[in-house]
Design a protein around this nucleic acid. Structure first.
Length: 419
RNA sequence: GGAGGGGUGCCCGAGUGGUUAAAGGGGACGGACUGUAAAUCCGUUGGCUUAGCCUACGUUGGUUCGAAUCCAACCCCCUCCA
C-alpha cells in the first residue's frame, strides 16, 4: 500500500477505522492539502446514541483533531422514512414529536465529543429536515430523481435481504437512499462538504451520494466506511442484559458504561483501544500484549479512557474506583447503582423477590424465583435460598442492603426518609 | 379485482382437535471452571397472591366437553394473473 500523506487518513488506517474507500489516494491528497469538510449522518431512532455509533463519533473527532471540519448530520428528515438498508422488515414509523425528542438527547452526546464553532475546524451540527421537509415533489423528481436508475438501486446488497426474503419494501423506504444521496449534495452546497463516512452497511447509500454529486454538480465526492464491529466471538457490539449500551448518562450510568468496557473479551482489547481511545499506538501495543490475567489491567485502562470521553474524567475515575472496591476488595462501594425504598415500607418488611424487582435486577417476580433456584441472587453477599424471605431494617449494613444478581450486577437499596 | 401460499413465544422454526405454556435451534440470563475474559459443561427462559390461577399461537366471532389446530369475516405479507 502506498504511504498515506495526511494525518487523518494515516490515523484512520492504523487505528482500524477503514473498511472501504471510494478513492483512498485521492481522498488522502485532499486531506493533505488543507482542511476538508466531511460528514456522518445519524438517525434519530432513539433518545441517545449507543456504542454502535461510537466508531463514527470517534471518526468525526479525529477529523477535528487533525485539523478538519466534521459535520454531524441529524436525520430529522430521513428518520421520518426509516432506512431499509439490511433490515429484514420495515421499521415502525416514528412520530415527529418522538423524533424531535430523540434529536435533543443525541445532541447532548455530541457536545462531549466535538467542539462546535465557526472556525475552520469548528464542528457543525445540522439537520436534514431543514431541506428535506421543504422539498417539492415534482421539482425534486426532475432535478434529482432522474439521476437514479431503479435497476441499479435494486441491485444493492442493502435491499437484497428484503427482496430475497420476499418481504415488502415500500416505496417510502425505497426513497431513503435517494434522500441520503441528496443530503450529500446539500451539504456540499451549504458547507463545502466532500466526504461522507459511515458504517459499512451505509456503503450503498453513500456511494449513491458520490454518484449524485458527479451528475448534478460535477463535483468529486468521497466515501469512507468503517468496518462492522463485532466482538472477537462474533457478537454484535453494544448489547447487554439491560439493553443497548447508551452514551447518555441518564440512560446508562457511567459506572455501568465502565463495566461494559471492563468486560471486553481478551481478543478485542487492542482493537478497541485503537478505535475508542486516543492513547498513543505504542502504549496500546504494550497494553494489548499483556498476557493472562494481566490483560485485565489493559481492560481497566480501556474502560476508564472510553468512559472519560463519554462522561468526563472524574466520572470515569469514580466508576473505576467503585469497581475496584466492589470487585477487588469485596467492600461496599457506595457509588454503586442505588434504589431508594421508603423507610416505613422497609420497617414493615419487603419480600426479597419484590425488592429485586424494585432494584431493576430482574424483570418480574417469576424471574426472581428462577434466579433463586439457580442460585443467582444474593443479599449482602449471602445467597438467597428462601424466596419467601422478607427483608427489613435488620438487614441494613452501613445503612444499605446490597443486592446482587450473578457476580457482576450489584444494586444498593437505601431507606429513604419518609414524608 | 381473480387464483394460490402464509402470519406461532426475544428471533428462527416445528406443531393441523385433547397430558401443548407449545418440539428443536439461536440469543439471553444464572451456576460450575477462571482472570469481572474466551471456550466448555449444567440449569433457566409468559405473568401472578405458584400443589392453583390467569394470559398467549395476526384480529374478531363461531363449532366443540375441549381449538394454535375446524368454520366465518376482517387485517397484513408473498407469488402469479388482470
Amino acid at each position: 500500500m502506498t504511504a498515506l500523506k495526511s494525518d487523518f487518513m494515516q490515523t484512520m488506517t492504523e487505528r482500524g477505522f477503514v473498511h472501504q474507500c471510494s478513492d483512498l489516494e485521492g481522498l488522502d491528497a485532499r486531506f493533505a492539502s488543507g482542511p476538508v469538510t466531511g460528514y456522518i449522518g445519524f438517525d434519530a431512532t432513539a433518545k441517545s446514541l449507543h456504542v454502535g455509533s461510537l466508531m463514527q463519533i470517534m471518526a468525526l473527532r479525529w477529523m477535528q483533531k487533525t485539523g478538519h471540519r466534521p459535520i454531524a448530520l441529524m436525520g430529522g428528515g430521513t428518520t421520518r422514512i426509516g432506512d431499509p438498508s439490511f433490515k429484514d422488515e420495515a421499521r415502525k414509523l416514528l412520530t415527529d414529536e418522538q423524533i424531535d425528542d430523540n434529536l435533543a438527547g443525541i445532541r447532548r452526546v455530541f457536545d462531549r465529543y466535538l467542539a462546535f464553532g465557526d472556525g475552520p475546524t469548528g464542528a457543525i451540527m445540522t439537520n436534514n429536515a431543514l431541506w428535506l421537509n421543504e422539498l417539492r415533489y415534482i421539482d425534486f423528481l426532475r432535478d434529482v430523481g432522474r439521476h437514479f436508475s431503479v435497476n441499479r438501486m435494486l441491485s444493492f446488497d442493502s435491499v437484497k435481504l428484503r427482496l430475497d426474503r420476499e418481504q415488502s419494501l415500500s416505496f417510502l423506504e425505497f426513497n431513503y437512499m435517494i434522500l441520503q444521496a441528496y443530503d450529500f449534495v446539500e451539504l456540499h452546497q451549504r458547507h463545502g462538504c466532500i466526504l461522507q463516512m459511515g458504517g459499512s452497511d451505509q456503503w450503498g447509500n453513500i456511494i449513491n451520494g458520490v454518484d449524485l454529486g458527479h451528475r448534478m454538480l460535477d463535483a468529486q465526492f468521497y466515501a469512507l466506511t468503517t468496518p462492522l464491529l463485532t466482538t472477537a466471538s462474533g457478537q454484535k457490539m453494544g448489547k447487554t442484559a439491560a439493553g443497548a449500551v447508551w452514551l447518555n448518562a441518564d440512560m446508562l450510568s457511567p459506572y455501568e458504561f465502565w463495566q461494559y468496557w471492563r468486560n471486553t473479551e481478551d481478543a478485542d482489547v487492542g482493537r478497541f483501544l485503537k478505535l475508542f481511545t486516543e492513547l498513543p499506538l505504542a502504549e496500546i501495543e504494550r497494553l494489548a500484549a499483556l498476557g493472562g490475567a494481566e490483560i485485565n489491567d489493559a481492560k481497566k485502562v480501556l474502560a476508564t479512557e472510553v468512559t472519560a470521553l463519554a462522561h468526563g474524567r472524574a466520572a470515569a475515575e469514580e466508576a473505576a474506583e467503585t469497581a475496584r472496591k466492589t470487585f477487588e476488595e469485596g467492600a461496599l462501594a457506595d457509588a454503586l447503582p442505588t434504589t431508594e425504598v421508603p423507610a416505613a415500607e422497609l420497617s414493615a418488611g419487603i419480600g426479597v423477590l419484590a425488592l429485586f424487582v424494585r432494584a431493576g435486577l430482574v424483570a418480574s417476580n417469576g424471574e426472581a424465583r428462577r434466579q433463586v433456584k439457580g442460585g443467582g441472587l444474593r443479599v449482602n453477599d449471602a445467597a438467597v435460598t428462601d424466596e419467601r424471605a422478607t427483608l427489613g431494617p435488620s438487614d441494613l449494613v452501613d445503612g444499605v442492603i446490597k443486592l446482587s444478581l450473578g457476580r457482576k450486577k450489584h444494586v444498593l437499596v437505601r431507606p429513604a426518609r419518609g414524608p
